[in-house]
Amino acid sequence: MKFKSNGMTLTGKRFDLSKIIVYIAIVVAFIVFSITLGSSGFLTVKNQINILRQMTTIGIMSFGMTFVIGSGEIDLTVGANIATSGIVAAIVMRSGGNAFTALLAALATGLLIGAVNGLILIYTGLPSFLITIGTLTILKGLSMELANSNSIPIYNRTFTQIFGNGKVFGIPVMILWCLLCMGIAWVLLRKLPFGAKVLAIGGNSKAAEYSGINVVRVRLTIMVLSGVMAAFAGVLYCARLQAANYVYGDGAEMNVIASVVLGGTAMSGGVASVIGTFVGAWLMAMIDNGTVIAGMTASQQMIVRGVVVIAATALGAISARRKQKR
């Protein structure tokens, strides 16, 4: 009948815990580690910079993933993408290419990976979860093939300095690259029509289509963006380690997804935050760092990381559900 309820849920402009939980969590983690590990070196400037440097590759992948998840899709290839594009860069340099050509080759690889994912997505309409499980496996095989299952050393000092180990005014270049990527992602999401389209598609793709938005093109662009961002992370990764290897980035997609979701991006799409994603990745790196200083084993670290992800996202989700009931 005409007298439908107006859907009066109280989720208007009110305080939403799921969006700010990551900021609370990182403050809590910092305080806890400062108290317990302050004397063991956690609080030194060097260690804090170290944490930021460690988060950079996951962070850059996560910025691309923020758009993917914000549009209601998923990209599981980001970890394998790191290996493949890193190997391509290393091969280019081994064959005499300079640092710049190596960078371009790696980014082109990422673009191609994203384009393949995107094209399969828009032409088959299969769930992106399934598509990228497939392409992920292909990429793993491909990178093993390219590298003959070996590590390829990188001797190009320009490359390793600019993207990996160099410093500007005492700040590691990797942190600067990460901040640059964050800036680009933030502008794309908040300042350009593109971001508005991405979130509209994630919120209700039908309504986006009926508003005349070219949903297909935006989806393709999102997957390409994620591919290129992950490839750039691959460049940093192999520059830092001065080698490329097919095992690099293995399983990184899980940390990436966790960072994005911790940062307040909705798994169902429609809501996303680049700054939140940055803080999410930072939090994960801080926990890794703190647990190492505390002397935990790798296996114990993994358990802690898993608990934190569930606890933080659950708190946000529970608060959102409570509010709806009220």
Partner: peptide, 23 residues
């Protein structure tokens, strides 16, 4: 289901077809 992105604000919905003009 077809007209609105329900989880978004009034103004975000309003400018969806005219994003270009809003730049």
């Amino acid at each position: 289901t077809q007209g609105l992105v329900l989880i978004h604000s009034l103004k975000k919905n309003l400018v969806l077809p005219i994003l270009k003009k809003m730049c």
